[in-house]
Design a protein around this nucleic acid. Structure first.
Length: 795
DNA sequence: CTAGGGTTAG
């Protein structure tokens, strides 16, 4: 019986033309003078062809090699093996060719595969992660009496390991009559590939035990070091370094070991050592440069990373690779340095690397993070090849730029194009649901994540917790938090922040204390979440206490963001002067955002005098961003200085800052209904406005009076009341009152902060219409019930 | 040996 042909995932290449291969007459005439029937001559010719074949392969010219091979009248096993070997080393694209050639070899009864064939076809299977083909080849090898061959077994271990079949790999390994360092390395590298630190370490120790003790070689270290880097196992990394020096391993494979070492140091945060290893390397390649540049970027040392990138370019373009550009682009993205980013774009185009997928994805992400979402979209459309990463980058780009609805469209397009979403895609998409407070979409995404088996992933759980919290289901957030298999610092921070926006300061504090019991160290973000949770609950004294604890007990130096939270805490709590004093005492110059927090509170507490002072500060610093223009203009309006208010708005317009219109939306049966102030585009507008008018009549009876200080424009008093009455949040709530049955909570989301008048009106609405109303604004949750709001006066 | 997309804060 003929052996079964191995399966290949890719379409096998056509088998080379076999006997009788009528050699083209012209070719024969050119290549030979003697008659072809001379056996001696044939042998010579074959030898020459084999030499030529090896020569092409040595020069890496596989096309020529294949061409020559196809013309060989009578290829022997050696010729097959040479080409199979060459294919098997060239990555997945050529691995399919190797398997096809092997299949042809099986059909060619005159030269059966031998012990030089099997290891290389197995290597090709490993590149393709084709277990079925691998098992078939294993059977062929066993039939050829090679089941215990060192090379066959090692290749088989490599294949099983790559496919995460640890038990069969170990079985082959233990059945081997003898094991050399390469076999041990295959086991160790397999464990390292899957991040199995303890298994890999045990391999390392065991190989050095017993009478057949083997010393780790350069390959061992090169497999081991990335694992140590991932674990931030600096001490072990250092001993590996020492060992490599003692064993003179740095001489033979200086580039590989050196690069792995410097990468390990960089990932452990030891840039000084990384740099020293780098400087000491006599030979560097493109990977070395990528590793050192990437190391500085990962540690946040962007300027030095750019410096290294320039050093690299100073040596010519020989070391330039998509990888190093990707790291540099990441630095641009995090610094929002569009200038350098564009230069890198040009550099990529000039060096012909712009069609590289990695480089394209980095560019796309850089533009999206810089806020140039149109550029990013254009780039995406132009990309010849797109993968999961490209789609995910665009999804998160839209979310980051506040276009959550567009993110869903990209996601749908991705599915239509049969590109499979992975963990990162879903982690990008779920915040879109959170942003829209689209609970139905969120639940759908949750379901999809469960179906795809991603539900236990920490980052997925974190995103889901945040989504449920922002959709008003803090209980569901806590459920996920309680059952998730592993929690990281983001999980704790997300949960604390979730309690914060719900005004549950006590719960946030309790969770923070619990964190210490779980041996989880709080970070800078934890305290921002905690202090803002206190701020939303009016726990001013506690917030102040945490701020001091942060520096003195936890050794975290306050950043600008912490000062913003503190000013918000003090000012929102009514301690405006103390907040002002606090800003004065800051060790650094206060940011516009710090003053903005104070200004917002001045507005809430209607402290015009201080507000004017703060407004002057903000004007001096330059308002930077729409929010402060709006606050500034509001301040002047509230003080009755409408000319100045108008002036601010004109400057805002001139500078190109668009105020995003106040927009509120409500999800009914999975569809979102959005409203802007005075909006009459909704089909049920007449009913909605009628309902609002009715409500106004009812609440006026209860003593409500419009607080027209929240109207920005210079209007007649009655007009002002109208402008207030039709604020977007009121429209959305009225629509909710009309469409939802009385037992349902009305959940409305607003992109800006709820104004003071709306806050009062909604309290009354909850009373006269006997409804539970939740409004999520840009800041927090407001739960209105029986004429009260959960936030009391702290909104 | 390196590298692209992702979750928390105001």
């Amino acid at each position: 019986m003929r052996p079964r042909l191995p399966d290949t995932k890719l379409k096998p290449a056509a088998a080379p033309p076999r006997r009788p291969p009528p050699p083209p007459a012209a070719a024969r005439l050119l290549s030979t003078a003697a008659p072809p029937s001379d056996p001696c001559h044939l042998q010579q010719q074959q030898q020459q062809q084999q030499l030529d074949l090896d020569d092409h392969i040595a020069r890496g010219d596989l096309t020529r090699a294949r061409h020559l091979f196809d013309r060989m009248p009578d290829p022997d096993a050696r010729a097959y093996n040479s080409l199979i070997r060459a294919y098997s080393w060239r990555g997945p694209a050529h691995a399919a060719g190797a398997l096809a050639l092997y299949a042809a070899m099986l059909r060619d009864a005159r030269c059966p595969p031998n012990k030089y064939t099997f290891p290389f076809v197995l290597k090709a299977c490993s590149a393709l992660q084709d277990l079925r083909a691998g098992r078939a080849i294993h059977r062929h090898a066993a039939r050829a009496g090679l089941h215990a061959d060192l090379f066959v077994c090692t290749a088989l271990i490599d294949l099983y390991m790559k496919c995460a079949r640890f038990v069969p790999a170990a079985a082959v390994f233990h059945a081997m009559p003898a094991r050399d360092a390469v076999a041990w390395n295959a086991m160790l590298a397999g464990y390292a590939l899957h991040g199995m630190y303890h298994h890999a370490l045990e391999c390392l120790l065991r190989m050095q035990e017993g009478c057949a003790s083997l010393r780790p070689n350069a390959s061992t270290l090169v497999a081991l070091l990335p694992l140590l880097a991932q674990q931030s196992a600096l001490c072990q990394g250092k001993s590996v370094h020492a060992y490599s020096v003692r064993a003179s391993l740095h001489d033979k494979d200086g580039v590989l070991v050196g690069t792995a070492l410097l990468d390990m140091y960089a990932k452990c945060g030891e840039l000084l050592y990384a740099r020293r290893v780098f400087e000491a390397m006599p030979i560097r390649n493109d990977v070395t440069w990528s590793a050192i540049i990437g190391g500085f970027v990962v540690c946040g040392r962007m300027t030095e990373a750019f410096g290294l990138f320039k050093d690299m370019l100073a040596q010519g373009l020989g070391f330039l690779s998509p990888t190093s550009v990707a790291s540099a682009l990441r630095a641009c993205a995090s610094l929002a340095d569009l200038h350098i980013g564009k230069q890198l774009h040009v550099l990529l185009a000039k060096s012909g690397l712009h069609s590289d997928l990695t480089a394209g994805n980095s560019l796309l992400s850089m533009y999206a993070k810089a806020g140039l979402i149109d550029e990013a979209t254009a780039l995406f459309d132009e990309m010849a090849a797109k993968d999961t990463v490209s789609y995910s980058a665009l999804v998160s780009g839209y979310v980051q730029n506040g276009m959550a609805d567009a993110a869903f469209l990209v996601f749908r397009k991705m599915q239509a194009c049969n590109v499979q979403p992975d963990v990162a895609t879903m982690v990008s998409l779920i915040p879109a649901c959170a942003h829209l407070a689209a609970l139905q979409h969120g639940k759908c995404s949750h379901g999809s994540v469960i179906v795809r088996g991603m539900a236990p992933e920490t980052s997925i759980c974190n995103a889901l917790m945040d989504m449920y919290a922002k959709c008003g289901r803090i209980g569901l957030s806590r459920q996920i938090f309680d059952v998730m298999p592993a929690r990281d610092i983001v999980s704790w921070n997300t949960m604390i922040a979730g309690y914060g926006i719900h005004g549950l300061g006590k719960e946030a504090t309790a969770l923070f204390l619990d964190m210490n019991n779980h041996a989880c160290e709080p970070d800078g973000v934890t305290f921002i979440c905690l202090i803002s949770a206190c701020s939303h609950s009016g726990l001013v004294t506690e917030g102040k206490r945490w701020f001091h604890m942060m520096a003195h007990k936890y050794g975290i130096t306050p950043r600008m963001e912490h000062y913003i939270s503190m000013v918000d805490l003090l000012a929102r709590g009514g301690f405006l002067d103390e907040a002002y004093q606090f800003i004065q005492s800051m060790p650094m110059k206060a940011d516009v955002r710090v003053w903005g927090a104070l200004l917002a509170a001045c507005r809430v507490h209607k402290n015009i005098d201080l507000g004017k002072q703060v407004a002057r500060m903000i004007q001096k610093l330059g308002p930077e961003g729409t929010g402060n223009f709006v606050l500034l203009s509001n301040m002047f309006s509230a003080a009755g200085r409408f000319d100045e208010a108008a002036e601010v708005r004109i400057i805002q317009k001139e500078k190109g800052f668009k105020k995003s219109p106040g927009c509120s939306w409500i999800e009914i049966n999975g569809s979102l209904h959005a409203f802007i102030g005075g909006d009459r585009s909704h089909p049920r507008s007449p009913e909605i406005y009628q309902e609002l008018d009715n409500i106004l009549v009812d609440i006026n009876k209860l003593g409500y009076q419009a607080d027209t200080s929240f109207v920005l424009q210079d209007l007649e008093e009655e007009e002002k009341e109208k402008a207030l009455l039709y604020h977007s949040e009121k429209l959305a709530i009225a629509f909710g009152v009309l469409t939802l049955s009385e037992d349902k909570t009305i959940f409305v989301t607003k992109n800006l902060r709820v104004c003071g008048d709306c806050h009062t009106v909604i309290k009354y609405m909850s009373l006269v219409r006997r409804r539970d109303i939740i409004v999520r604004d840009a800041n927090r949750f407001h739960h209105f019930k029986n004429g009260q709001c959960s936030c009391g006066d702290f909104w």
